[in-house]
């Protein structure tokens, strides 16, 4: 379980986090939605240790840690593939930086390429493939990290609707087949409702939890499900309120 308690962070006069707490169960899938600029990415930066927290506790599997640098892998909207490496070499980068590439690792990456529909493109450089394929390659790289916790910051928001949809099933695989624990930031309320076990709606900075929605229906889900449609309306209203709040 990932547990965050009483996290504080301020940038000069701007208080981004003021006692923020959140838990994600092991092998769970939690989605964060909130108004733009409320502090979601900053929260991830604190988790990964890229930005130092002012105070607060972060613990993973019951053990308190300074940050999740060695525990979590991180994927963003930008695929961050190195343009001079082939897709395969990009995917193997975490291994190459770590203990070095062995035969087994390459086999594993090959299997993932097959699983994610990238077979045959292992030798291509990122500049020669589509955005969806690049993002899939970034997902393979994320999986090659061998880390149980996966942080996703709007991982699919740069893609077109159809590609995004095909990658939803891949994200679900992370939970079911690869037994990852997922924490995902998204602006797409539908995406959150389709994928997550819990959707957390956040307030404007200082970021607080406004409401949490538990979702128990089986996946894959359909957005036409009346229960989801109701939740979607509700969440969108809340986000609208947050925006109006800001305007006042």
């Amino acid at each position: 379980m990932l547990a965050v308690a009483e996290l504080y962070k301020r940038f000069a006069a701007l208080e981004v986090l003021s006692g923020f707490s959140l838990t994600v169960p092991r092998n769970g899938f939690t989605a964060l939605v909130g108004p733009s600029g409320c502090g979601k990415s900053t929260f991830f930066d604190l988790l990964t240790g890229v930005v130092a927290k002012d105070r607060g506790q972060i613990s993973w599997l019951g053990e308190e840690v300074d940050h999740l640098c060695g525990v979590a892998s991180y994927m963003q909207q930008k695929d961050l593939l190195l343009p001079w490496l082939s897709l395969m070499d990009n995917a193997l980068l975490p291994v190459r930086v770590g203990k070095g590439v062995r035969k087994g690792e390459e086999e594993k990456a090959r299997a993932l390429f097959r699983r994610l529909g990238l077979e045959g493109f292992e030798g291509y450089i990122p500049g020669k493939v589509s955005g969806g394929m690049r993002q899939r390659c970034a997902l393979v790289r994320t999986l090659m990290f061998e880390r149980e916790l996966v942080l996703l910051d709007e991982p699919l928001s740069a893609l077109d609707a159809i590609t995004r949809r095909s990658l939803h099933s891949v994200l679900l695989l992370l939970q079911t087949e690869f037994k990852k624990t997922l924490l995902m930031i998204t602006h797409d309320v539908e995406e959150a409702l389709l994928l997550a076990d819990e959707v957390v709606v956040l307030s404007q900075a200082p970021m607080k939890i406004r409401e949490r929605f538990r979702l128990t229906s089986a996946k894959p889900r359909k957005i036409t499900d009346p229960e989801l449609m109701g939740m979607k309306e509700h969440i969108l209203e809340e986000l609208q309120e947050e925006l109006n709040h800001d305007a006042v």
């Binding site: 890229v50 979590a72 963003q76 961050l80 980068l93 990290f145």
Partner: peptide
């Protein structure tokens, strides 16, 4: 060199010389 890339390499546990070889130099 893009700072997001540097962060990515840090998360992989890459020190300065690894980053130099695999990231900054190319």
């Amino acid at each position: 060199c893009g700072s997001e890339y540097v962060v990515l390499f840090r998360l992989m546990g890459a020190g300065f010389w690894t980053r130099m070889r695999l990231l900054y130099w190319p």
